[in-house]
Simulated scan of single mutants.
Amino acid sequence: MLPKLVILDRDGVINYDSPDYIKSPEEWIPIESSLQAIRLLNEHGILVGVASNQRGVGRGLYDEATLALITEKMYQACADVGAHIDAWRYCPALERTHPDHKPNPGMLLSIMDEFNISPQDDSVYFVGDKLSDVEAAINAQCLPIMVETGYGKESSAEAIAQYLDLPIYTNLLAFVEALLKDD
């Protein structure tokens, strides 16, 4: 049975990441196969949420108005391929103790709450490229998925060492195709 909701990290999953942060719409470059993956999820009636730490805002590297422009570019890139994102959450906090800062589950729980979805009743996946994404999924009782785009290749060895049965895919599209094939 297909899940009702798949939540995605943004940087490194939907778009190419940068160690210097994505600070402007010009720096936000989509991973084309990820946009196709989002479209496939939409076509199968699966809600798509995005949960992203945005520490660059907290560090003063860019402001919330710029983040809104970057987000609008993400929405438009999705629309250009016939896809859409149903929910967007971000956390600008620098403190790892903030309830929304991944690996804490706040953003994921907020998205599930918006759609009245409980991970106890429904399968909810969280797809990320960092160990903190895997931990956020576990903390929110979601099924963690790691992709090798972004920091995934570097993070996967550490994640596998801690979570032996962690599913790892080359990219978001590979995960979505496997998910839909199993239905």
Rank of each mutant, 00 (worst) to 15 (best):
L2I: 06
P3L: 13
L5P: 06
V6Q: 06
I7H: 07
D9Q: 08
D9L: 06
V13C: 13
D17A: 05
P19Y: 15
D20G: 01
I22H: 02
K23H: 13
S24E: 06
I29E: 14
Q36R: 05
Q36G: 00
A37R: 02
R39F: 07
H44P: 04
G45V: 08
V48R: 00
N53L: 04
R55I: 07
R55Y: 06
Y62A: 03
Y62T: 02
E72C: 04
A79K: 07
D86H: 01
R89C: 15
R89W: 06
L94D: 05
L94R: 03
H98D: 05
H98M: 09
P99V: 01
H101R: 15
H101P: 03
H101I: 03
P105C: 08
G106D: 04
L109F: 06
I111W: 00
D113H: 02
I117A: 08
Q120L: 05
D121T: 07
D122W: 13
F126I: 14
V127G: 14
G128A: 08
L131S: 09
D133F: 12
V134K: 02
A136M: 09
N139W: 13
P144G: 11
P144V: 13
I145Y: 05
E148I: 10
E154M: 10
A157N: 14
A161Y: 12
D165F: 11
P167S: 12
P167F: 13
I168T: 13
Y169W: 06
N171K: 09
L172A: 11
L172Y: 14
L173G: 10
A174M: 09
F175M: 12
A178M: 05
L179N: 09
L180G: 00
K181A: 10
K181F: 14
